[in-house]
Design a protein around this nucleic acid. Structure first.
Lengths: 132, 132
DNA sequence: CTTGAGATTCCAGTGACTGGAAGCCCTATG
DNA sequence: CATAGGGCTTCCAGTCACTGGAATCTCAAG
């Protein structure tokens, strides 16, 4: 398989697949003409990567997960540990965003949003709730 | 004021302040010795930037907000528009993270996490719920 | 006079791609 | 057989918002 077909079947753009090869996530063989020659297992790996990235795992996590996937003597606890850590990071990020959302939505609601210059959003940014 | 004091009072690291000058967000004067000489208004701007960044506004949004802040003929609607767009981006991001969180927490719960190699997390990544 | 803290500039790296340029390979058509 | 195109190759640069580090300079204190 050439890169175009793999891209289509895995849903990962050619550019990204080349990048994944650069950083050693996949190692396709080469045909006589220099083109990358992907086997089914390469496609499988790329699809795996696509799903892991869609769940927000970092590239380094993906590398770990892939190696665990290929390691028959793995312990599921190792996989779970990676996933739990990532889950916690997601929770932290959500909490942070929700806190921003909270503040911001209050500010947006309190701004009349018309042609006048007075704006509680700017007042808040300029110096906190007791803004000048 | 030298950069150290401004950093302490604004909560923004010196490196970041220099970066903000590089990209034209602040324009401190210079003393005879070549040191940056910050005035109160510069400090004020930096504190403004710190709060805007803490709410997740991009640097470009910050630039816009700062210029609106300094524009006496602004209309609050302009500020509100920027904030609303950002709020929507935050909502989108939260939704995306919550969807990941959902999937991931199911997977984590379904993994026994012991010394055995079988792992529903890997099965899912390897090929969806109907994993091999 | 030396020491140390704090200031300066510039270069490089982060994460995970993505865009673009220059050029090779292959197939199909005129 | 020449050519046009589409797909493939490599390499370089840019994204975003910093951050680390090196080499050098300035200043106040002892």
């Amino acid at each position: 398989m050439n890169i175009g077909e793999v891209a289509e079947r895995s849903g990962i753009p050619p550019k990204t697949i080349r990048y994944y090869e650069d950083i050693g996530l996949v190692r396709p063989q080469r045909s006589g003409n220099g083109y990358r020659a992907f086997r089914e297992t390469d496609l499988h790996k790329l699809a795996f990567l696509g799903r892991a990235r869609a769940l927000g795992f970092s590239i380094e996590d993906c590398r770990t997960l892939l190696s665990l996937y290929e390691d028959e003597s793995r312990e599921s606890a190792q996989v779970k540990a990676v996933a739990e850590e990532h889950l916690k990071a997601i929770d932290d990020k959500i909490a942070q965003l929700q806190s921003m959302r909270e503040t911001l939505s209050h500010l947006v609601r309190s701004c009349h949003g018309d042609h006048r210059p007075d704006c509680p959003i700017l007042s808040d940014l300029a110096g906190g709730p007791a803004g000048a």
